[in-house]
């Protein structure tokens, strides 16, 4: 066969080969079909580990208990027992190393999330005693009169 037929074919073959070699280097080894099959499981396996490595920010009450036993015991014996400490104090991250101390949010909006009166008899909201935020002692922070860790106790007596 004559050369002029083969020559363009060689060029085409070279391009295909180039793409395949480039693919070999560019596509990571762990990219492929995994447990969930071709339809749902075609991905880079290493990405799972990347998601697992995201930093945990909220450490939950079990962690706070180690050092703040007094606050822990107070809140666990109160109507607020189920509220996560970090909802009101911010995420623990590596506290007490970093940050050395957590914020104390005394703002009224903190309590209004649950205690603002809404006329919703058919929702769980109706099981919480509601107050009118505009008229219930608007001049002061709630925690001046209600101890957040144990709202049954009065003021700062605890």
């Amino acid at each position: 066969m004559k050369n002029h037929v083969w020559r363009p074919l060689y060029v085409a073959l070279a391009i295909v080969l180039l793409i395949l070699t480039a693919r070999l280097f560019l596509v990571p080894e762990d990219f492929g079909v995994h447990e969930r099959g071709y339809m749902y499981g075609w991905y880079r396996k290493g990405n799972e580990a990347e998601w697992r490595a995201v930093k945990v920010k909220y450490r939950t009450a079990a962690y706070c208990k180690e050092c703040h036993a007094k606050e822990y015991d107070a809140i666990k014996g109160s109507p607020h027992s189920r509220i996560m400490c970090e909802n009101c104090h911010g995420p623990a991250l590596d506290h007490p190393d970093d940050p050395p101390t957590l914020t104390i949010d005394r703002h009224r909006s903190l309590c209004a999330r649950c205690h603002a009166l809404l006329p919703y008899k058919t929702s769980g909201r109706s099981d919480i005693r509601g107050i009118n935020i505009e008229t219930h002692h608007p001049e002061a922070e709630c925690v001046l009169c209600h101890w957040p860790h144990n709202p049954k106790a009065e003021g700062k007596s605890l």
């Binding site: 945990v56 920010k57 909220y58 509220i83 996560m84 970090e86 909802n87 911010g90 995420p91 999330r113 649950c114 809404l118 929702s123 769980g124 909201r125 099981d127 919480i128």
Partner: peptide, 14 residues
């Protein structure tokens, strides 16, 4: 659900 929104708050931060 009482609509306190703490879940949304925590999700955004976390």
């Amino acid at each position: 659900c009482v609509g306190c929104g703490y879940c949304v708050h925590a999700c955004k931060v976390e």
